[in-house]
């Protein structure tokens, strides 16, 4: 099978504008987009830059946009694209560092804002925590997030509102709030009770659509909203114990 790759190229330190470069690529085997990119780099153009690591859709390095679809290049088979033309672009709404390599700092910074770590209390229980399996199951959907950045990059709100935390960070917050071991006070996490936080989501569900790990971050945002309302009502109830 013969393919024409159109790959977005840009070195902000040299080029004025991004541009597409054409590469022809031929293979008889089943290849992923990542494998094809590596071969194109090795054989045709060693200046082509992109990130990769695990090649098994678990490390989150190789998120990019292929023929308009957000996905991990390692798990996208050329054949599945059903087209001899393969257009490869970096994740949008992020600064290009070089070619397909983007600056994910805004994504990581948003994550840090939700305090993405378990707020467990007290000493380590001698025989460990007791948690029912169902409770672990409930957070596992969000634990599966590999922080590849697809949802953040695809989110229409992120592209417009600079201070919006984005789907991954909010879903991660829900993962902790829902964890029976997490004792963060409501006043602490209710900081997301804003337009830059849980209420910023326009329920377009682009994040659910593009997530390569079926995390469905919007479920987490919805659940956060419900929890925010419930906690608010509780705090307003004068008869509460």
């Amino acid at each position: 099978m013969k393919y024409l790759f159109k790959i977005l190229r840009f070195d902000p330190r040299q080029d004025e504008h991004p541009y597409f470069q054409d590469y022809s690529y031929e293979t008889e085997e089943t290849k992923s987009v990542l494998e094809a990119l590596m071969e194109i780099r090795n054989v045709q153009d060693c200046s082509l830059s992109f990130r990769y690591s695990c090649r098994e859709a678990i490390c989150g390095s190789c998120a990019m946009v292929v023929n308009g679809k957000f996905d991990l290049a390692c798990r996208t088979e050329l054949e599945s694209l059903d087209s001899p033309l393969i257009v490869v672009e970096p994740l949008p709404n992020l600064e290009i560092q070089k070619d397909l390599v983007v600056d994910l700092d805004p994504f990581w910074e948003a994550l840090v804002k939700i305090e993405p770590f378990l707020h467990s209390e007290g000493a380590i229980p001698e025989k460990g925590h007791r948690i029912e399996d169902e409770k672990i199951d409930k957070i596992f959907q969000y634990v599966n997030c590999i922080l590849c950045g697809c949802c953040y990059s695809a989110c229409p709100v992120v592209s417009k509102r600079e201070n919006y935390l984005g789907p991954a960070a909010l879903a991660k917050l829900y993962r902790f709030v829902k964890d029976p071991r997490d004792k963060r006070p409501f006043k602490n996490w209710s900081r997301v009770n804003t337009e830059g936080g849980a209420w910023g989501c326009h329920t377009i569900f682009k994040c659910n659509e593009v997530c390569p790990k079926e995390v469905r971050p919007a479920d987490g945002i919805e659940a956060l909203r419900r929890k925010l309302i419930v906690e608010k009502i509780k705090s307003l109830n004068p008869f509460k114990r």
Binding site: F117, L118, S120, I124, P125, E126, K127, G128, H129, R130, I131, E132, D133, I136, I139, F140, V143, F176, D179, R181
Partner: peptide, 23 residues
Amino acid sequence: SLTIYELEHLGVPFSRFPGGVIA
């Protein structure tokens, strides 16, 4: 054993057995 309990206390969501202990 202590290492596992430490990891769990730091946030690792280990799968569980009935009764809530680490599977």
